[in-house]
Design a protein around this nucleic acid. Structure first.
Lengths: 248, 248
DNA sequence: CGTTTTATTGAATAGCCTCAATATCGGTGG
DNA sequence: CCACCGATATTGAGGCTATTCAATAAAACG
């Protein structure tokens, strides 16, 4: 019965999918059933490992994780930040080996999903399959957006753009409002995410703070001047709002 | 009967999918049927436009295209190069609006696919749906790979890595061999693809050529020293080879 | 052939990085 | 409860990578 005070408790994915269209009660039931094998994962311990065979996926119920690619020189690129309501490791179901690592950055609560369960869920309600495919495509288009940021935006714009995008995603699951959100990412995470050095991340954040635009401090992101952020980073307000599943 | 001299003629997608596992004759028939509405598109004319409603996808039979995101300052980021055998605009089937543009860079032959046709194809042979999902995931993991390149590799490594990756993809459809491949991309395309300026692309290519590693000239990519390229760019030989659909 | 793309090279500059040092925070054990 | 220690954050200095501006050459195209 997902009806507790913290909105994140396993209903995150339901909330997310529902915000884009009606989920039938069947959809919700099937979705809840996927949440059987709920487990807890400690921060820092990889859940999915690059190059390893692993045919399970997860639904993130609580906590944050990052998926990343490791280069042999030791550097890494974080491909995506995963927040409550997101799927983890869907790719490893399709391939023999995962091409990315997934590591919790806080204590994480997630439900293990076996391929067979997912397939039968799809069979039970095609609508749900469509919704999940939509969510996956949305994730993909966000990665393309980040690629664009890395390729064609300067560090400060890149930073603001990311912080806004994350805000939109968090709002979908009730973890952010117009003033900002709690954020467990460190400056090192931001560096690996945005293709910068930690030192430069620090300077950029200081400049943005002093400019009165956005404050990233003490595990909290505060939008000091949202309109200016949007203009500065050229953030498409429709960015994710509009990515509603077709036909809904 | 796709059995002409140029291997690319509409059989590219069959060849690609088949190279990763047996396609039943039913699969092949259904796949061929999707190739009904074959059309020709002139280079430079957008096939899919960012922010536009468009519920059709395409299978690229012949020619090359790029999908890209346009920024308001006029710069652009090419997200992916699409070659024969690839799908185009799958994302626009799921969303109301496409988030990317697709533009042919040569004259292109492609088959229009309506959503309904695709769905019935999936219904007819689930195996095919799985194969296409696999192909889509493979594309996605390549974008993640490029993100990693932009974030964490220097321009020369980035360049070599991309040229190798493209070579692997082209080999799958018989358009490349160990010595290199024909490539209609300009240095401007490479710049928009790799997040560099055209000027720097030019210098990097010259350096690589003079170093005897790879020659990009006159619409042709020549691997002058493949082993050295692989080592230099730290290219994972299993990169795509290993991304075989699970259970095949 | 002229005209427009595409490629090429030089010079100066800007953005971001590395190295290095110090400060602060958060947790842990005595 | 405090001292300590590792992780995180902060700032300066100098250097390297890649950019912009600018000019010219060479192809591609109609």
């Amino acid at each position: 019965m997902p009806n507790q005070t913290p909105v994140t408790q396993d209903s995150a994915i339901i909330r997310k999918l529902a915000s884009f269209g009606a989920l039938s009660s069947t959809d919700m039931t099937v979705l809840s059933d996927l949440h059987q094998r709920r487990r807890r994962y400690a921060s820092g311990r990889e859940m999915v490992r690059q190059g390893h065979r692993n045919r399970t996926a997860y639904i993130l119920a609580d906590g944050w994780a990052v998926s990343y690619i490791l280069l042999p020189d030791g550097s890494r690129q974080i491909v995506d930040v995963r927040i409550p309501g997101d799927f983890l490791g869907l790719g490893s179901m399709l391939f023999n080996k995962s091409s990315q690592n997934v590591e919790p950055i806080t204590t994480v609560e997630a439900s293990e999903i076996q391929e067979s369960d997912l397939l039968s869920a799809f069979a039970a309600t095609p609508n749900l399959g469509r919704a999940l495919l939509w969510a996956a495509s949305r994730d993909q288009s966000m990665v393309a957006g980040r690629l664009t940021s890395l390729g064609r935006r300067q560090a400060p714009e890149r930073m603001v753009h990311f912080l806004l995008e994350l805000g939109v995603r968090l709002r979908l699951v009730g973890l952010a409002d117009k003033t900002g959100y709690a954020c467990p990412l460190t400056q090192y995470h931001l560096a690996d995410l945005l293709g910068l050095s930690p030192v430069h991340v620090n300077r950029v954040l200081r400049d943005l703070r002093e400019a009165g635009m956005v404050t990233f401090q003490n595990g909290h992101v505060a939008f000091d001047d949202l309109p200016r952020m949007v203009a500065f980073a050229d953030f498409d307000r429709e960015y994710l709002d509009d990515k509603v599943p077709a036909q809904w």
